[in-house]
């Protein structure tokens, strides 16, 4: 499959740009910091390190998704290296998803490395293993996939700066939705509530994918909620992929 060839070389290229070296250094740093923090901070040491580790993996994968994702296709268009690739016998769609898949590989390695370090530290500091930890990492990965698809989509229609701003904006809104709905101000105004619900159907609700808080306070989540969230993610991923494909196949590449 040509898509896989593109994915492979995209991964290779980003890998060779030494981004993963940074991730590696980050995970070592994480191990040190969480060891230090758990010794100094109040609270159960294993929990502090878990909190820190998850926060950092989420932040770094979102960061990588946004800042590498924005140039993933756009940079190739600007440098016109895309012309040479597309002069080969590969469809635009295979090329697009090959690039995205390659980038997902990088994100996956990032989440995997940071998760392993986090989990290791957690267990080392005496934490008890719970399957929720794995779910949490899975959702971190899912979240970065959505962010990547978003930023790629925006980069195809706007310039890089705007694409980054839009993506961060949507991410922040997606996170905030849940909180806003709870606000008294909103609850007293049905019209507002209605608008927000409408909004919710357009913007991915990233809060749904965040199970960290449950994990930290040892609330068990029913499996139903988790699979529901997973479906929610899949739906958005498919939707954004279709949008990306639609835009890219019509784009003028000059």
């Amino acid at each position: 499959m040509k898509l896989l060839i593109v994915a492979r070389y995209t991964f290779l290229e980003i890998y060779k740009s030494r981004i993963l070296l940074n991730v590696f250094l980050l995970s070592i740093g994480l191990a040190l910091v969480s060891a230090l923090a758990s010794a100094l901070a109040y609270g159960i040491p294993s929990r502090v390190s878990l909190d820190l580790g998850m926060g950092l993996s989420s932040l770094s994968s979102i960061g990588i998704a946004i800042f590498l994702g924005v140039g993933l296709i756009q940079k190739e268009i600007e440098a016109r290296s895309i012309h040479l690739i597309l002069s080969h016998s590969i469809s635009r769609i295979s090329y697009l998803f090959g690039k995205i898949l390659g980038m997902l590989g990088i994100l996956f390695v990032n989440v995997l490395m940071l998760s392993a370090v986090t989990l290791g530290m957690y267990l080392f500091l005496g934490g008890v293993f719970s399957s929720m930890i794995l779910w949490s990492f899975l959702f971190t990965f899912c979240e970065s996939i959505l962010v990547l698809l978003l930023v790629v989509m925006f980069s195809l229609v706007a310039n890089q700066v705007l694409a980054v701003l839009f993506t961060i904006g949507i991410y922040a809104c997606g996170y905030g939705l849940e909180g806003i709905k709870d606000a008294l101000f909103v609850r007293l105004r049905p019209a507002f509530m209605y608008a927000l619900t409408l909004f919710e159907h357009v913007i991915p609700n990233f809060y749904k994918l965040n199970v960290k808080d449950y994990l930290l306070y040892e609330h068990k989540l029913p499996l139903g909620y988790l699979t529901h969230a997973l479906f929610y993610f899949l739906m958005y991923a498919v939707l954004l992929s279709v949008a990306n494909a639609w835009i890219f196949s019509r784009k003028n590449l000059d």
Partner: peptide
């Protein structure tokens, strides 16, 4: 058709890290 065309772009610029 693409398989039977060899194309050289005006400004050859390829993947810098490969």
């Amino acid at each position: 058709i693409c398989l039977s065309i060899g194309y050289l772009p005006e400004r050859p610029y390829f993947h810098p890290h490969l």
